[in-house]
């Protein structure tokens, strides 16, 4: 009779315990910055730059293609359909609310989580399985300093930068779509800029930072959470991308609810 309640209770306890461990890991990562030795900053800085290269720079073509196609299709359809009811003014709202504020940050974060989050988790899990993390500790190097902190910072900067890129490309692709449907370029920019408020900008910035924090924390947490079996590496990568995706959607919903 009480077995299902007991099972559910254990599952909730386990979930809360994981959540607590994740929060503690995030806190340790943030505070690790303060104890990073001066010499270590140069080395960690190089890892940080490499992370940005992999996470942001190499993802630029993918983001441009996705943002361009999505925005072109959406605005192309919108101009046609809204034109029939003389409401082309609404493409500004559509562009700002649907793409710049919501889909831009969401899709960019999902791209980075799927592409780099998996890689980070798999890399750190491999470091753990190969005994590299223990070796770092043995040398007096904190794995948080060398492995986690640069990836954390790199993820935040990358997600933030890619969101801005996504939104810019989307606005430009919208211009192409609007022009293809005989809308004047200046008119298009006037409508879009009129719809864009300071609040939209802050919401986008806020989302970029929070999504970056999720992608910078969750994959490292799962990657370093493995023990010593190689079979745990793909499991860690899978958990990282699933947890990050769920987190991104939840935060996105929270922004909508609070906004």
């Amino acid at each position: 009779m009480t077995a299902p309640i007991s099972t559910a209770g254990r599952a909730v306890t386990r979930w809360l315990s994981q959540l607590g461990a994740l929060a503690r890991f995030f806190g340790n990562t943030v505070f690790a910055w303060r104890s990073l030795p001066g010499a270590g900053r140069r080395v960690a800085g190089r890892v940080f730059v490499n992370q940005i290269w992999f996470t942001a720079v190499q993802a630029i073509p993918l983001v441009i293609v996705l943002a361009g196609i999505l925005s072109f299709l959406l605005i192309n359809q919108a101009v046609r359909e809204l034109g029939r009811i003389n409401s082309t003014e609404l493409i500004g709202t559509l562009m700002v609310v649907a793409i710049v504020r919501e889909l831009g940050p969401l899709l960019t974060a999902l791209i980075v989580a799927g592409r780099s989050g998996t890689a980070i988790a798999a890399e750190l899990a491999t470091n753990q399985v190969m005994g590299e993390v223990e070796a770092l500790e043995g040398m007096g190097i904190d794995p948080l300093h060398y492995l986690v902190l640069p990836r954390f910072g790199g993820a935040i900067v990358s997600v933030f930068g890619l969101i801005i890129l996504f939104d810019l490309v989307a606005i430009l692709a919208g211009l192409v779509a609007a022009s293809a449907n005989d809308m004047n370029s200046l008119r298009y920019f006037e409508i879009v800029l009129r719809s864009l408020t300071l609040r939209d900008t802050w919401l986008t910035v806020g989302k970029g930072l929070v999504f970056g924090v999720i992608i910078g924390t969750v994959p490292s947490f799962h990657g370093l959470g493995v023990r010593r079996a190689a079979t745990e590496v793909p499991i860690a990568a899978s958990r990282a991308v699933v947890t990050s995706t769920v987190g991104i959607f939840l935060v996105s919903a929270l922004f909508v609810a609070l906004g």
């Binding site: 890399e123 491999t126 470091n127 190969m130 005994g131 590299e132 223990e134 070796a135 043995g138």
Partner: peptide, 9 residues
């Protein structure tokens, strides 16, 4: 350590 623990990258 056993297995050298060298960083592969």
């Amino acid at each position: 350590p056993a297995g050298d623990g060298l960083l592969q990258n």
